[in-house]
Amino acid sequence: MALLEIEKISVFYGEMCVLRDVSLQVERGEVICVVGANGAGKSTLINTISGVLKPRSGKIIFNGEEITHLEPYQIVEKGIIQVPEGRRLFLNMTVEENLLLGSYTPRSRKKRKENLEKIFTLLPRLAERRKQIARTMSGGEQQMLAIGRAMMADPQLIMFDEPSLGLAPKVVDHVLELIKNIAAQGVTVLLVEQNVHHALELSTRGYVLENGTVVLSGTAHELLNNPHVKTAYLGL
């Protein structure tokens, strides 16, 4: 049984169709990459899985249970979390407060201490800066904190929305390394990224989204060698 199964969802903004009959499967332990241009519907997809947007038709099944109509907070409790685009930290709060807010749901709150230690080992920088206000940190540090905050939710599936956006190349490498680390811990990853080459390199499989529909899917290796992907996304 797949961890996450999306069956033919269509999502609308008013009368505008942003996703049309999108189906997607994520197996436990995979790193799935969703590739697509600006406006292809990548963020919409992630926000629909999170329950912020509701599909007009189709189903989302997580761990064999339909979650299509659950509220966002219930979906987090089930084990799905996202690292939103642009980080969206609670900027006026400390590093520690941000992390604690990541474990607000009852299930993750029970494992708070344990997860906090894990994150501080993974990201020692955050431990040093516990009492620092998030606003005063650099972009890269903020991205680390956003990822740490999401990991505090003790997720089974973590979704990244453009994690490398607006970061220096060196920092991007660090972020991608961190994602690899998280995957190695057994957390399933769904990655939306414009940095297609890097993203596919650390993925097991990928989907190509164009104008709200899936036009291609396959293993990362297949996609990296696909002529369409090469010309449209890799600039080769």
């Binding site: 999170s50 912020v52 509220e71 966002p72 907070y73 987090v76 409790e77 979390i81 996202q82 939103p84 969206r88 930290l89 609670f90 900027l91 006026n92 709060m93 407060e97 604690l100 807010l101 990541g102 607000y104 749901t105 993750s108 709150r109 905050r149 939710a153």
Partner: peptide, 24 residues
Amino acid sequence: TELGRAMRATGQDRGVALLMGINV
């Protein structure tokens, strides 16, 4: 308190509070 912190978080960014599992 946990609830107080969640309230401040909601005040700062309602959308992200929702994504973090807060019942806004």
